[in-house]
Amino acid sequence: MRLPYFPGCTLHSKAKGFDASARAGAQALDIVMEELPEWTCCGATFPMAADSAMGLVAPTRILASAKAAGKLLTLCSFCYNTLKRTNRVIATDAERRRKVTTFIEEDYQGNVQTVHLLEVLRDDIGFEAVAGRVVKPLHGLKVAPYYGCLLLRPADEMGFDDPERPTILENFLKSLGCTVVDYPHKTECCGSFVAVSSPEVAQGCSARILEAAVKHGAEMLVVSCPLCQYNLDRAQRQVQAGGGPATRVPVLYFSQLLALALGCDEACLHLEGHAVDPRPRLSKWLGQTSQATALV
């Protein structure tokens, strides 16, 4: 299967491990992620003002560049949310469609379905088939799935999973052999970009999530959003400074566990650079090189 792929800015800069591990994991499942030859920032937030078309311009151009395939794969929750909701406007609101498409000079009717890699695994590959391709089952690894906001909400527009009781990450983790940790707060906000203006507020949001997950036995969290990863992981760096959560739990992208379980080259995992190092807990499944690095 070949799918046009929109990485988004963060996956080309701060979240290279998300990008590289997803590409490798997908490839192991015979999915070729074909990066769009040219792309810009999607805008990162869906514009809420109904009388402004400015914020729709960039995501519409990105969507239009995938119109031949009719599908556009993405990974970051922000990009996924922005692209999917923009497409809904273009497909259903004739006036705004006309305004935006005449401005960008593209004939685009809103035919591109934005898909998340988790959806491709669930709907096109099937989690049973994923389980069948696992070469390093992550038996005994207790993982708490964390959804955050943007994958699930607004539920009628995203249609990703049940907004209150989602199961897609749980089923994904089970397919890799993990033990899934159920806990409250998995769909609560991590603090998002409040981390810029009021870091202590965001840290409080992240701390509640982390503490609930650890209390229920989590050894690791998985996310699908670079900002969730940043907030949850970084919050734990503040422990020494005081005020942070009293947890030391690694926060990984779901794709990092996927690529690990599928036996992909460990270089794609980028396990270095996490505030809480996941390598000690994953040592059973890692090769000598990664472990040696972890010890240093």
Binding site: E38, T40, C41, G43, G55, V57, A58, F103, I104
Partner: peptide, 18 residues
């Protein structure tokens, strides 16, 4: 940058500014 591409349209060198 909002990705409007106006910069590209006015570039006399036809550079992909955006």
């Amino acid at each position: 940058c909002v990705g409007c591409n106006t910069c590209r349209k006015v570039c006399p060198q036809e550079i992909e500014v955006m």
